[in-house]
Design a protein around this nucleic acid. Structure first.
Lengths: 218, 218
DNA sequence: ATATAATGTGTATTTTTTACACTATTAAAT
DNA sequence: ATTTAATAGTGTAAAAAATACACATTATAT
């Protein structure tokens, strides 16, 4: 009746204009020395989402992050010792919130590093497939999800938002048309506050009006 | 290292203008006498998709059907004996192709029956949640997937296609606008054939041009 | 004062979406 | 032969959304 299984988590963030994903260098058989999504076994008495939160917490120092389930992978040949089912998630975190910029070494993992999503090496197991799934889902649901805002601070500029759209869609967008569209969405609140600490004209800050967002999409 | 887990499958079809889902009446603890999605344990040496295909075959007599994975459910309390992880799929089948209109009784299952999706009782386990997920996914991906065509014969009329869109979206569509939109998709082939056996004006038949569809969406 | 770096804005055009009602065709019934 | 019943099939005008495109404005640093 017992079930050993793992969860793996694509942790995405946005930094310096790029969409990044956090990967581990494995220190354990199989795929020792390969890069892989953070992941581990789910404890017997632990809910699956708790396990994902635990793993994400170990890597980022953050709790209660945004999570979406991507897929269950259960191929008989994905692990040399036999089938190990894994449930893959994706998490979205704000770069500035991340506490441990580099995850301390454990016995099964050497280091963690942010990779630009367009520059990811061949990964352990079926993790490249999972990454593709994650990026595809992010892209497909872009207009119906709060995902872009999970990658930004609570108050953000339209340029930051546009950069995230561009990173997720993989194409450049026209500034004026983008702003027009965003203002028509109906769930962005224009604040009377402005960026600080920049050596050029400070941009206006916006925030997501979650109530209005939910009204539109539920 | 061993992993017992199940797969469950929402089998959808379209009949008499309604979207239908095939459900089993359980004859086994837990949830004896409740209706549930068809599902069962995955054999130790069996791929997960094989298992889904096997279950769908037992219920419909069909092989190589359209499948999409929906979610993994692993709540500690979903089964009274402890966690049983299940991976939920949805399948789409053509009603006219289904061989066994009623599934023979087995020791764990009393009968199978098509339910109108808008008239489904309270189901075993978390199966109502899974049904909601399935319907939501069907709706959200309607315009990027071959799903509507999986529910229709190879050659179909635009009215049939419109009925499927309406059933999935849960709203009525305007005939002229719908036809205009379908003709602009670029992947419907207008045939020089017409319906037969109807006692009124026979409608033109169409079919999906899969090559063109794939070009657009890959 | 000047240079720098990014912000913020409008209009014309095209495309897409929406609203809306009647004639055409076929088979069956009389 | 005519009528009835049932569904197929069609066009246009209006509104809304998407696109293409360039320059003046503002804040800071020197």
């Amino acid at each position: 009746m017992l079930s050993f299984f793992t969860v793996d988590c694509l942790i995405f963030t946005f930094h310096e204009g790029k969409l990044k994903v956090l990967l581990n260098e494995r220190n354990e058989y199989p795929y020792r020395d390969w890069w892989a999504m953070p992941g581990y076994f789910v404890d017997k008495q632990e809910e699956m989402e708790e396990a994902v939160n635990r793993i994400a917490y170990e890597h980022t120092g953050l709790k209660n992050i945004y999570l979406e389930q991507l897929a269950a992978m259960a191929g008989l040949k994905r692990h040399p010792e036999g089938r190990i089912l894994t449930v893959a998630y994706m998490a979205l975190v704000r770069y500035d919130d991340v506490k441990n910029k580099v995850k301390p070494v454990t016995n099964y993992m050497r280091q963690a590093k942010w990779f630009d999503v367009s520059d990811v090496p061949e990964l352990a197991f079926d993790h490249n497939d999972i990454l593709k799934l994650g990026l595809k889902k992010l892209k497909r649901n872009l207009n119906y999800s709060t995902a872009p805002f999970e990658l930004l601070p609570e108050k953000f500029t339209l340029t930051q938002l546009q950069q995230i759209y561009e990173a997720i869609l993989g194409e450049m967008l026209d500034k004026r048309n983008f702003r027009k569209r965003m203002n028509n969405l109906g769930y962005l609140k224009e604040l009377e506050e402005f960026q600080t600490g920049v050596s050029y004209r400070a941009a206006r800050l916006y925030k997501l009006d979650k109530r209005k967002f939910l009204k539109l999409f539920t």
